[in-house]
Design a protein around this nucleic acid. Structure first.
Length: 494
RNA sequence: GGCGCGUUCGUCUAGUGGCUUAGGACGCCGCCCUCUCAAGGCGGAGAUCACGGGUUCGAAUCCCGUACGCGCUACCA
């Protein structure tokens, strides 16, 4: 096949938000298209008026573009195969359905919902192997049909499935799958409100939009024979099908809202980097065949093939996503991370405070390898943004010794005299004191960290004091000298 | 119920008949590094490859059956 004719699509229905499973489907389509120099189109499947949610399309597009999935054609960028909203293509479906009716491949059905309900119940009571429409309206006379049509009797159009035939689906990930038309219902193609069902709209649009590969979730595999029947009835060439394994909850059921976050926007709000989410979701059902776990989008594009997509569903394991998020943070430059931190800060209690870019970059550099989320910097090391309001008791107990007060006072004295000290100046000063006093480094370092940060862990002490600066450090040490000895004493008495 | 798909460490996975005492990653545990916490390095525990039959000199890999899980079974997508 000519590489340039490769066209795929992501066709979500606007029911609220972008599901992570949807993101994975969109990603695989995108990777496949880019890998093959093809095109990817975004098509909005808004044929169900009952499920329409205001703002859902904007939300979908927003999440997709945040994730870095760019479309060649779609509602935003347009294209030669539009419109890209199915709700704007009603006459197209109507024309195609009429063609099918004229050819005897589809037929009008005037059955009421009540009759259908009774039919189903009857079939169930008789324990029939499969419940399907009884083709009642297929046998209506032309006169009856015309009369019904003229009196505007509510109706749908159904696919006329010939029983006793075999339909084969050739799926890239699953191989050959066989179906018997005895098990295929006379699917409704056009609803009574004039809108098409998924099956009709999907096939017509995929053909008209020259889609070469249909890459979608496994939940569609069972209805693929219906689609193949439609392609055959229209005398159209089949696209290549690839059905992706499902994303699962920890209990192996289909990933759902009840058991955690499923919306891409939720992960975005929680502070996950798009690179991490993409990396993670790409590996859920695909791998390059080697041991590589860390991927950027361009490497994914380079390596991705449909042949290496797995068959079995994959549990969405948040632990690995978290690790990947930290991994991506570690590999980014502080310049890339700066806007993320600023954004988190603007949502935090420090939103009114001003910090220079230079200061924030130093903070980032010192914290980068200690965090899973950028916002961890704010929650785990608030001391970069405000002086400690308390001192961790455990650390006081463990690190504040009898000589801490004297050592720290001496250190304070020394640095007060320093002119514009560098990180090395602080280091030299501290080392000279412990040497003179003939104690271990930790004897001063730990109390100092406690005084500066209020906690027992964090970046290297010289990074910490340098980032905070002489003035701020002096002030914090003074406060600590006034309060920690008292705390230490009362802790010892308990 | 019917139809379809699936089943390798807790999880994501490598593996396409001999290279496999089934490899990697996350998580967990330990050691090293070290001013703390991380990161990093090293190591450990963890899978009778769902089960049962075959085919074969040889099977996680091929075939059959069973079990279990999941999907579909709407005028939803």
């Amino acid at each position: 096949m000519d590489e340039n004719n490769i066209r795929v699509r992501f066709a979500p229905s606007p029911t609220g938000y972008l599901h992570v499973g949807g993101l994975r489907t969109a990603l695989y389509n995108y990777l496949f298209a880019k890998h093959n120099n093809g095109k990817i189109v975004l098509r909005i499947e808004d044929t169900d008026r009952n499920r329409y949610v205001e703002g859902a399309v904007e939300n979908l597009i927003d999440s997709l573009s945040w994730a870095g999935i760019k479309f060649d054609e779609g509602p935003v960028q347009g294209g030669n195969f539009g419109p890209y909203y199915q709700s704007e293509r009603l006459t197209i479906y109507r024309e195609h359905v009429n063609k099918l009716i004229n050819d005897g491949k589809a037929y009008y059905c005037f059955c009421t919902p009540e009759r259908l309900k009774n039919l189903r119940e009857e079939q169930q009571r008789l324990k029939l192997p499969q419940a399907k429409y009884d083709k009642h309206c297929l046998h209506l006379s032309p006169q009856e049909i015309n009369k019904n049509l003229e009196t505007k009797k509510s109706h749908v159009v159904r696919l006329n499935v010939k029983p006793g035939e075999k339909v084969f689906v050739h799926d890239v990930v699953r191989g050959k799958v066989e179906f018997n038309t005895d098990n295929i219902d006379d699917q409704i193609l056009l609803k009574s409100d004039g809108f098409p069902t998924y099956h009709l709209a999907n096939v017509v649009d995929d053909h008209l939009m020259k889609i070469s590969h249909v890459i979608r979730g496994e939940e569609w595999l069972s209805s693929t024979p219906k689609h193949i029947l439609l392609y055959n009835y229209f005398n159209w060439n089949l696209p290549v099908f690839a059905h992706l394994p499902l994303l699962l909850n920890p209990d192996k059921s289909k990933l759902s809202k009840r058991q955690g976050d499923v919306a891409v926007e939720d992960y975005r709000a929680k502070g996950y980097l798009k690179e991490a989410l993409i990396n993670f979701v790409a590996l859920l059902g695909w791998n390059a065949g080697d041991d590589k776990e860390f991927y950027e989008m361009d490497e994914l594009i380079e390596k991705f093939t449909l042949e290496r997509v797995n068959k079995a569903g994959a549990v969405f394991n948040i632990e690995k996503l978290n690790w990947l998020n930290g991994e991506h943070i570690r590999r980014k430059s502080v310049d890339e991370l700066l806007p993320v931190l600023k954004n988190e800060l603007s949502k935090s209690k420090f939103k009114g405070k001003q910090f220079s870019d230079n200061y924030l970059k130093l903070v980032l550099k010192s914290m980068q390898e200690r965090i899973t989320f950028i916002k961890d910097i704010i929650t785990n090391s608030s001391y970069f943004f405000e002086p400690p309001s308390s001192y961790d008791e455990k650390t006081v107990k463990k690190r504040w010794k009898d000589d801490s007060e004297i050592l720290l006072s001496k250190f304070l004295n020394e640095i007060e005299g320093l002119e514009n000290p560098s990180k090395e100046d602080f280091e030299i000063t501290l080392k000279s004191i412990v040497e003179k006093e003939n104690v271990g480094l930790g004897r001063l370092i730990h109390p100092l960290r406690l005084a500066l940060s209020g906690v027992g862990q964090g970046p290297g002490i010289f990074d910490l004091i340098f980032i905070l600066g002489k003035e701020e450090s002096v002030s914090r040490i003074k406060t600590a000298l006034k309060t920690i000895p008292g705390i230490s004493k009362s802790l010892k008495n308990n």
